[in-house]
Nucleic acid binder design. Structure first.
Lengths: 329, 329
DNA sequence: TGCAAAGATACAAACGTTTGCACAAATCTG
DNA sequence: CAGATTTGTGCAAACGTTTGTATCTTTGCA
């Protein structure tokens, strides 16, 4: 690997001049810049970013921390963020927390130790308050949160209109004719889930129905827990469920198919691609992950001011919320 | 951020001693090591990996290059690799190529410039020979390829038994009673796809059938091209398709449902999760991505010797390959 | 007790870049 | 044309570690 020192030697100038020439400083003659650029090309020079980062005290790497990359939602956020960041000259270091607090701490430490330029993150279910985040990142590493955010932390937060969305989804079920609607509600240490629960409750109230803790199934976000909760919902006389996640809705459908239930509506959340492909197709409250990723990246580039940006959700109406549905294997 | 120099000063020793103490060198007295470790803990010291990497000429980051992370196959490979690599003290830098040669070149340059410890990759469809890979990475960065590999390149290759798998999948269709079986065949600059095509052909020949270029639909890996190819297959009198990918198989199914075809079998490849959830459920030749990721990571850790490791595929038999199937919307 | 061997630490250079400051040359001003 | 300003380059330190070599201190053994 050639260095700026070698280029400098070949041209009879100093490394400083080469450095300035290559980084576009105005303090170098146009002719020298040309000469340097030519020699650099000739030698196949590429800046040693490790040295550069050490000297500058920061890197062009932006860390993205997500619970799991294979969730479509997150991989699409990453896709959006990456597109914007690459365009702006940043690279992306992706860390998974597997929903565990310990892994989240490790990931943040890794990113800080690598002196990343910033962090975009969606916190793990296992981390119930954000104090570790700021204490690890300190003052110098800008933070942008998306989807699952701790609103008391500094920096920009990119969120969905969870309250509105859940309200619409629940109202849609009511309009279809369902009357006793339960919810698979996720974890309450996540503000996103808490807001969805509130939206669901508001929709019930606005229709003159009283929310009941008996049919609010907390902490259900995976297929298995969705299955279990749905059985309880059936026992409790529900005829529909608004699920704050698609996988728990899938589990609920497992239960419905198993018992060949009729007139039981389901709306999930996230619009994972399987929802459109399964049969009957699942209605789902779509997030807009790619857009959220773009906005998170842009917020970082713009300097991560405090504040919240809302990306709207969109209800995708399919067969699972049709009143006349019969669930069969 | 505290440095080893500060710790050294606080203890009245030199930075070298601190460095050695913290990195477990046998050349420091046990008492000093204890003292150093205690002070480090007290100061909340964390090694500046950027400086460390510069000095050592390499980092603990392993680059993973994939076409797209939101393909389940790849995100699961990444998951497996990450598990093994984290365990061994490495971090993971993920790059997407979006199937484009130019992006692949950029990704590899980024990784090299960051002095990654190694690269695990699955090449883009757009890159038709691997010469750029070795020329960018050079001698010092070990390379492990997985799934889509260039076999002439040095380093370990982790592959599926594509030939065997496609042979079994096609034979399964034959055994079900299908007689004119076409294939949605992917891109021939990828050895994995080429081998699947060969396996398919062999299965036909072994049943006394002659492969025909007319019903081998090359370059079809996405939903749209699968749809188009299936229409041609129907026109050509096919009664089944072995598809080298799941998304093209999905497109084919779109065409079958549109025309309410009966007795037409489909087997896809990759076992994306939607295949089991859709209805009728799609038979698919499952890869073993998590295991491939683990093996790729392990091969890197073990030193990336030349050679090939084969991870077996497994045929998941579902409804789409049942002879009596009728496709309906 | 003396001397060699081993053990522990210090010294200093190096990794490759960036950047404040100094300085020289070129240009401008009156 | 002298002095002031601008422009272009060099010098040298710094970023925080790591590591080969040198130096000093123990320890062991005769």
């Amino acid at each position: 690997m050639t260095t700026i020192t070698e280029i400098a030697a070949a041209l009879g100038v100093t490394p400083s001049t080469v450095s300035r020439a290559l980084s576009g400083s105005p303090r170098v003659k146009e002719a020298t810049r040309k000469a340097v650029e030519q020699k650099a090309a000739e030698f196949g020079y590429e800046r040693n970013v490790v040295a550069s980062n050490l000297r500058r005290g920061r890197s062009d790497i932006v860390g993205i921390v997500v619970p799991r990359i294979h969730r479509e939602f997150f991989s699409n956020v990453i896709g959006g963020a990456e597109a914007v960041l690459n365009e702006a000259g940043y690279n992306v270091l992706i860390c998974q927390t597997h929903e565990r607090y310990e892994d989240e701490v490790k990931a943040l430490q890794t990113l800080r130790n690598n002196r990343v330029a910033g962090v975009l993150m969606s916190h793990a279910i296992g981390s119930s308050d954000g104090s570790h985040i700021t204490s690890i990142l300190g003052q110098n590493i800008p933070l942008v949160q998306f989807d699952r955010v701790f609103s008391k932390l500094p920096g920009t937060k990119i969120v969905s209109n969870n309250f509105e969305g859940a309200y619409q989804a629940t109202r849609h079920l009511l309009q279809q004719g369902f009357r006793r609607i339960g919810t698979l509600a996720g974890y309450m240490n996540s503000e996103a889930y808490a807001q969805r629960l509130e939206g669901y409750r508001k929709a019930l109230k606005d229709s003159g129905l009283e929310p009941s803790a008996q049919i609010e199934f907390l902490d259900t976000i995976v297929r298995e827990t969705g299955y279990d909760a749905c059985k309880k919902a059936l026992a409790a006389g529900c005829d529909a469920l608004y699920s704050a996640g698609d996988f728990s809705a899938l589990g609920a459908i497992d239960a419905l198919k198993e018992q060949s239930i009729s007139h039981f509506g389901i709306v999930g959340t996230a619009n994972e691609s399987f929802t459109a492909l399964m049969s009957p197709a699942m209605s789902s409250l779509a997030l807009n992950p790619y857009e959220m990723g773009c906005q998170a990246a842009q917020a970082f580039i713009d300097g991560a001011q405090d504040g919240e940006k809302v990306v709207p959700m969109e209800l995708k109406i399919r067969e699972s919320s049709n009143f006349n549905i019969t669930w069969q294997k």
